[in-house]
Design a protein around this nucleic acid. Structure first.
Length: 391
RNA sequence: CCAGGGGUGGCGGAGUGGCCAAUCGCAGCAGACUGUAAAUCUGCCGGGCUUUGCCCUACGGGAGUUCGAAUCUCUCCCCCUGGA
């Protein structure tokens, strides 16, 4: 269980394809996890989940905890039966990301990827009035008026209850606005939290794979330090989190510092990354697993993924054609015309976002398969060229 | 025919003498979205320009009052609600 077999490697690159054996499925890598924050996909009825082509999903511990979904998951005997996905690999995020996204990130209305240097200078570092208190012990916050707490032990306990195949160690995701000193301090705390996560996970190793998470922001020395500390732990795989630099091209380089040091024979999951260019950059730098809200969120925002790039439904709303005649998703197979999707959208008919979500998920499933095959057939760089024309 | 209430930008609907080219919502146009507080958010949205400003045309039509009117008066047209 949790063996990782690398099937093919690409020369002049760190890219590899492989098979990660998890209790519910052997997933072929590279693969992207679809984000099901509340143990369900937004805009998609649970009954339809098992009809999706995607083999890998990720559920959020923070949200299932605060919304008290976990007891229901337990009652159904775990996340796989709860979601009706007995034959898929499911991961859980630790809740650590919310420390950032609901704390510092929300205060500054910023994601972990910095939009521009100007914004950085305009905002500066200011961590006052962070609604979430972070200490060595863990994190205290309020939800719906009631005080709650999250720390490595609590996160592990909750993730055990959810029962996913892959779990993430409890970490803190820092912002590009944080100082070097803060990112270093936070990273070291994340390392200590990793030891506590591993300790709290004892006895569950056969059933659930705990991934240690590498942090260190955009700094080479911190990333390398984190990779060597986290990489030395006896865990079956690794997450790579945080921000990767103040311009998008830095992602590959930053990830590369980490994957050079992490044990080669274990899988790496690049947390929360999923733009198409970034997937290619990640794969090229030795990433095996990804997860991202982009396919689902953008579908709800009427952005359709096709081989010819991202398409605004708004601009195609008069067309009688399906989204992509080559695609085999439900929307395209049923030849649902673009104008119909638009009419549904205007009428607040959920079929609009449901079909668009399904389409984008199909697109990403297909993309990941093409990437795997291209590594095995040594055509990865041609494939990358093709996609870079439109993405 | 009488009484009352209305007619505002593509639509809905504010405004009732100057700060009104006119709040706001919808639709329209452009963009964003990376371990999901997101079917969300941002910008534009009468026309033209030398676009932190200027000019033109505009709040049913016309005529007035006034330094100044979408806002007041008169008149005409149209719509709605009661009553003959």
């Amino acid at each position: 269980m949790f063996s990782f077999d690398i099937k093919a490697r690409l020369s002049h690159s760190k890219a590899r394809s492989g098979i990660f054996d998890t209790p519910h499925r052997k997933i072929r890598t590279p693969e992207l996890a679809i984000v099901a924050t509340d143990a369900q996909l937004k805009s998609l009825p649970n009954e339809m989940l098992h009809e999706l082509p995607n083999p890998y999903f990720i559920v959020n511990t923070y949200h299932t905890y605060t919304k008290e979904i976990i007891p229901n998951i337990e009652k159904r005997g775990g996340i796989h039966t709860y979601m009706g996905l007995e034959d898929r690999t499911i991961a859980t995020d630790s809740g650590g990301f919310q420390v950032f996204s609901l704390g510092f990130g929300r205060k500054h209305k910023i994601g972990k990827i910095l939009p521009s240097k100007e914004q950085y200078l305009a905002i500066g570092e200011d961590d006052s009035a962070n609604p979430i208190q972070i200490t060595e012990e863990g994190v205290k916050f309020e939800f719906d008026g009631k005080p709650l707490e999250l720390n490595p032990e609590i996160s592990m306990d909750l993730q055990h209850k959810i029962g996913a195949d892959i779990m993430m160690a409890f970490d803190e995701c820092t912002s590009p606005l944080n100082s070097y000193a803060y990112i270093k301090e936070s990273m070291e705390r994340t390392h200590r939290w990793l030891d506590r996560s591993i300790e709290a996970h004892k006895g569950h190793e056969h059933r659930q794979a705990l991934f240690g998470v590498v942090q260190g922001g955009e700094y080479e020395d911190l990333r390398k330090r984190s990779a060597s500390v986290v990489g030395s732990k006896d865990v079956p795989g690794f997450g790579i989190g945080g921000s990767f630099g103040d311009f998008k091209e830095a992602l590959g380089t930053t990830v590369g510092w980490v994957t050079d040091i992490l044990p080669d024979e274990k899988p790496r999951h690049l947390l929360g990354i999923g733009k198409i260019r970034d997937i290619f950059a990640g794969v090229e730098n030795g990433v095996d697993l990804f997860d991202c809200v982009i396919p689902t969120r953008e579908a709800r925002h009427r952005m359709l993924y096709t081989k010819k790039g991202r398409l605004y439904l708004r601009k195609l709303k008069h067309l009688d054609d399906p989204i992509d005649p080559q695609c085999s998703c439900f929307a395209c197979k049923e030849k649902i015309p673009l104008h119909q999707l638009w009419d549904w959208f205007l009428a607040y008919d959920s079929r609009a976002t449901t079909y668009m979500t399904i389409h984008n998920l199909w697109f990403y499933a297909q993309l990941m398969q093409e990437i795997r095959e291209s590594i095995e057939q040594k055509t990865f760089f041609q494939l990358k060229e093709t996609y870079y024309k439109y993405y």
